[in-house]
Each structure stands twice: as structure tokens, then as C-alpha cells.
């Protein structure tokens, strides 16, 4: 069980959580805008169902309300690290496939990548605050994606952005849970009570 919160740590955590909520909220808004621009730019159908894309962390979770604070942070951290690599690769593909044709999309993609990186760092901050070790990143980064056709690349990009938009919502909810004062016994544990 984590050491009881000192007032300053609790304040610091609540501050980090509320800033994280704002960062995640802004990121979500930008991802939704980017998603709209991406769908239009790539000529995709916004309502298309996209099968789960290999290597893209799924935001979907069961019994979400029973997760511990540490579980929430660790799952978030792993996801955003993966998104950081996925977005960097999308940016590379976008330059390869579109070059100068749509610099706007490239800039929007780069902006979201920046926010994902910032949010990743923010999660690491929260874990450090809980004197939790920060899990190391996979040395050589995620495995190189399989060689995809252009349409598969487009769908993959759609899948990445959709999952990221859902993750941003989940992160906001997670951080709200973490920002709650120490819960009454038996209730879903916030951060302070993570094992």
C-alpha cells in the first residue's frame, strides 16, 4: 500500500491530475479535429468500421471502475508511449505519401505528437510522485509494422487516431479518479491506496 499522502504530495498530485485532465482534454479535441482532417484528406468514410490494428493499444477496458490508481497510470503510460511511436511513424508515412501536398495535415499530426509526448512525460511525473518506478521503454522501440498497402496504411492511421481519441477520454476519467481524495474503505481505490 502506498504511504499515506502528505498534504503537499496530495496537493501536488491533485495539481498534476487537474493539469493532466486539461492536457488530455485539449489533446482529445485536437485528435478529433485531426481525425476529421485525416478522414477527409485520405478520402475515407468516417463511419467505416476498422478492425483492431496490430500494435495499437486498445482503450477498451472491462471493469474500469475497479482499477487501482497504479494500474491506471501504468496502462496509460504504456499506451501513450506506443502512440508516440505510432504517430511518429504516421508522420513519416505522411511525408512519404503526400510530401508537400498537405503540409497542414503534417503539422496537425506533429502537434498531436508533441502533446502525446508531453502527456507521456506528465504520466511519468505522476508515477514518480507516487515513488513508483517508471517502467523502462523497450530499447529498440515497438516492432516495425508489417509492410502495408497504402489503403491498409490509411486504415491503420484511422485506427490509431480513433483509439487515441478514446484513450484521451479514458485518461480524463482515470485522472479524475486519481484526483479524488482518499476513498472510503472498500470503494475503488484512488492512487493513494494502490497496492
Amino acid at each position: 500500500m502506498a504511504a499515506a499522502d502528505s498534504p503537499s504530495a496530495a496537493l501536488r498530485r491533485r495539481d498534476l491530475c487537474s493539469r493532466g485532465i486539461r492536457l488530455a482534454g485539449k489533446m482529445r479535441a485536437d485528435v478529433v479535429d485531426l481525425l476529421d482532417a485525416y478522414v477527409e484528406q485520405q478520402g475515407l468514410d468516417a463511419s467505416a468500421s476498422v478492425a483492431a490494428v496490430e500494435g495499437v493499444p486498445l482503450a477498451a477496458v472491462e471493469r474500469w471502475d475497479e482499477q487501482t490508481g497504479t494500474q491506471r497510470l501504468l496502462e496509460n503510460l504504456a499506451a501513450y508511449r506506443a502512440f508516440r511511436a505510432l504517430l511518429a511513424q504516421m508522420l513519416e508515412e505522411q511525408r512519404e505519401q503526400l510530401g508537400e501536398a498537405d503540409a497542414g495535415l503534417g503539422r496537425a499530426l506533429a502537434a498531436v505528437l508533441l502533446q502525446v509526448s508531453a502527456f507521456t512525460y506528465h504520466l511519468e511525473e505522476l508515477l514518480r510522485l507516487e515513488s513508483r518506478g517508471i517502467p523502462g521503454e523497450e530499447e529498440d522501440g515497438p516492432p516495425a509494422p508489417p509492410r502495408l498497402s497504402l489503403f491498409e496504411q490509411k486504415l491503420r492511421g484511422l485506427g490509431v487516431l480513433r483509439e487515441l481519441a478514446q484513450w484521451a477520454v479514458r485518461s480524463v476519467r482515470d485522472l479524475r479518479q486519481l484526483a479524488k481524495p482518499s476513498p472510503a474503505p472498500g470503494a475503488a481505490p484512488g492512487l493513494a491506496e494502490s497496492p
Binding site: 468500421s49 476498422v50 483492431a52 486498445l58 482503450a59 477498451a60 477496458v61 472491462e62 474500469w64 485506427g159 480513433r162 483509439e163 478514446q166 484513450w167 477520454v169 479514458r170 476519467r173
Partner: peptide, 9 residues
């Protein structure tokens, strides 16, 4: 709802 935050329709 068994699963939250799902992108599966």
C-alpha cells in the same frame, strides 16, 4: 456496458 472506451462499434 461491459466494456468502456471501446472504438468497436
Amino acid at each position: 456496458l461491459l466494456q468502456l472506451f471501446s472504438t468497436v462499434k
